[in-house]
Nucleic acid binder design. Structure first.
Lengths: 195, 195
DNA sequence: CATTGCCCTAGACACTATGTATCGATAAAT
DNA sequence: ATTTATCGATACATAGTGTCTAGGGCAATG
């Protein structure tokens, strides 16, 4: 069984990697992005500084990896947020609500800077793109059902949704989140009155 | 006339300060936020490193000052975007359109990281708050005219608007910006159908 | 025109962070 | 028990930080 070998090794590597990402998030939350250093990440993660360099080449790479992990995790929660048997508009509503909740908690646990960068910036790449496509597909489906406007491309509407819902980070209550989701959905569902 | 003295001194200080902020923006755009250093800012701004420390205590302070300058500048453009004689809904539309244009250009000139942080984060403070209040007032007025929904607080709607329109940074054309503004306004104007 | 203040530049300093290389130690797999 | 791979520690040259001091430039006074 050569499997066991790589399995435990990989498990350890994953643990160290996770510790580094968590340490990074905590440091940014309390000291800001600009002051982020490899030394502090290593110390906070309980790992040798030289060892950390074997996992990430620099602080920017740690930040990028954290982004990737967060967005992947968010995507998992979104995809399991709704029963696949429901109509698209219901699944969309559930996904958007979940996304808003994530933003709400994310803005509180990590600092504002991390939350702000989470769903922007080119370096995020693949995971960010999958998130956008997931929402865009739901929108396309719902539009085919006649539940949403179809005069704007689904991709553009998905961008609109994801950005609008980041306002949940500034919400001051759970009810405010629900109102925000309702307003955002109104932008999607209302057909244009008269050009 | 001791006035002349302070006038030219202040003019010089403002020039150095501006050069530092511009240098900072350029550096972040091409090297990223994490790699921002006082040395590079000073060099790029054509100013002694020790001198820069008399203007800003650290790199974070330069970043914050840049934010403040940008948002103040944006607010000026928004307030002059519409004829005060027009009804509130027209002024709101003009302001939102202007804001979207700003986001579009901002995302291209400065890197994604700076644009992402621009309208988030607590350290921005006063200017950010004024921007929010300006939009909130327009929304309140328009709601009183019966042109907008009044079932959600104007402040929450203002947050929704400003976040939704940051999607303009990802737009790929001028027409896309117009569609985004229309969708965002639809979220504001549509009264809830039936709870 | 010389003087006075102010501010800037430049250089130096001690300290911390970076990135890399090497070492013995540790722990898993054969 | 031996091999293999990683780890922590240490070391080192380079770069960034924050502060201080000395010297120069320039506008406003006398």
């Amino acid at each position: 069984m050569p499997k066991l070998w790589t399995e435990t090794i990989d498990a350890h590597r994953a643990a160290v990697r996770d510790a580094a990402l968590n340490a990074m998030a905590a440091l940014v939350a309390e000291r800001g992005l600009v002051a982020l250093t490899m030394s502090q990440i290593a110390e906070r993660a309980g790992v040798g500084r030289a060892t950390l360099y074997k996992y990430f080449p620099d602080a920017q790479a740690v930040l990028t990896a954290w982004h990737e992990r967060q967005i992947t995790e968010h995507l998992d929660r979104l995809t399991t947020a709704a029963d696949p048997a429901e109509p698209a508009i219901v699944r969309l509503r559930a996904a958007l609500r979940t996304f808003a909740e994530i933003q709400y908690h994310s803005a509180r646990h990590h600092g504002g800077e991390l939350a702000a960068l989470l769903h922007r910036g080119e370096h995020v790449g693949r995971a960010r793109h999958r998130l956008r496509e997931f929402v865009a597909n739901l929108i396309t489906e719902a539009a085919q059902d006649g539940d949403l406007r179809d005069d704007v491309a689904a991709g553009e509407l998905a961008d609109y949704c994801l950005h609008a819902l980041t306002a949940a980070g500034a919400a001051d209550s759970h009810d405010a989140i629900h109102r925000l989701v309702a307003v955002t959905l109104a932008g999607l569902s209302a057909p244009p009155p008269l050009p």
